[in-house]
């Protein structure tokens, strides 16, 4: 379990990124952290694996204060994938990159090869194993950075903007991989602006603005709140906007429409039956 208790952090004492953040994440949850640029999302997850230590307040990992834990100890529990893959990749082949982390964690060579192969396959990277990450496209490099951390199957996965540069198919693959890991009791935390990705795959959403948590609860309740959308510089999904526009003419259209199948039924009802029930 991860607990943050009234955490403050400012960069060089100038720019305050976190202003009293308290948050609990249980084992096995899938949580999305959303918010505007500069809201403190990345600073928050860097506290979860010890890259940053709180200047005020506390962060507890399994009940232990992170001030007393080394980065190495924390890295075994929490795997963090950065927003920019170039901050993370440094070896001359995709295979070496993925193997590097696994070796450090002391897996057997057989297990290393198994995990490496299956993670690459899941992320559509089979065939790139011997390539240098720096010859790959931005989207592909991003998936290599994800593969390195996902292969180690840490108990907690914290991913900063994992869907950037990914096409629809790759996003689906990534979601499936995250759901599979979550089934194995792994906690999955994503920082993202991708509201559709969150609605489809994350039951809980934490909304941040200006270094504070402004809403925390079920994704459907947090993201159907217009105030949260505004504060966090988000945008409603197209289907929600369509439903809102329809509701102005047809009051029978229900609120909180977030999925394609819902809007499809609403439209079929409007066009076929006259009134929608």
């Amino acid at each position: 379990m991860i607990q943050l208790d009234d955490v403050y952090y400012s960069y060089e004492g100038l720019y305050t990124a976190l202003r009293g953040v308290s948050l609990e994440i249980e084992d096995g949850e899938r949580v999305a952290i959303m918010g505007s640029n500069g809201a403190g999302k990345t600073t928050l997850i860097k506290h979860m694996n010890g890259l940053l230590r709180p200047q005020r307040g506390h962060v507890f990992l399994d009940g232990r204060d992170t001030r007393n834990l080394s980065v190495a100890e924390m890295a075994r529990i929490v795997g963090l994938v950065f927003q920019s893959p170039d901050h993370q990749l440094f070896l001359d082949s995709v295979h070496k990159e993925v193997v590097f982390g696994l070796k450090n964690l002391g897996f057997t060579s057989e297990e290393i090869e198994d995990r490496c192969a299956s993670t690459l396959e899941h992320l559509g990277l089979t065939g790139f194993a011997e390539r240098s990450p720096f010859t790959l496209s931005g989207g592909e490099r991003k998936r290599v950075a994800l593969a390195c951390v996902l292969a180690t199957e840490p108990r907690v996965l914290a991913l900063d903007e994992p869907t950037i540069g990914q096409d629809a198919q790759q996003k689906d693959r990534l979601a499936q991989l995250l759901l599979d890991l979550n089934q194995k009791e792994r906690t999955v935390i994503v920082v993202t602006h991708d509201i559709e990705f969150v609605i489809e795959h994350f039951p809980r959403t934490v909304a941040m603005a200006d270094g504070r948590i402004v809403a925390d609860g079920s994704t459907s309740s947090v993201l159907s709140n217009d105030k949260v959308i505004e504060l966090c510089s988000l945008a409603h999904p197209q289907v929600t906007l369509a439903a809102k526009a329809l509701r102005q003419s047809f009051p029978e259209v229900p609120e909180r429409i977030t999925s394609m199948s819902q809007i499809e039924e609403v439209i079929m009802g409007l066009l076929e039956g006259g009134t929608y029930s």
Partner: peptide, 28 residues
Amino acid sequence: PKATQVYKQLKRRGVTLGRVPLTGKELA
């Protein structure tokens, strides 16, 4: 876009809207 996807899905079910929408508002 999801609005375009809904258009295609409706078409499969026998409902063809006047144009291909690109936004939620346009779909509505």
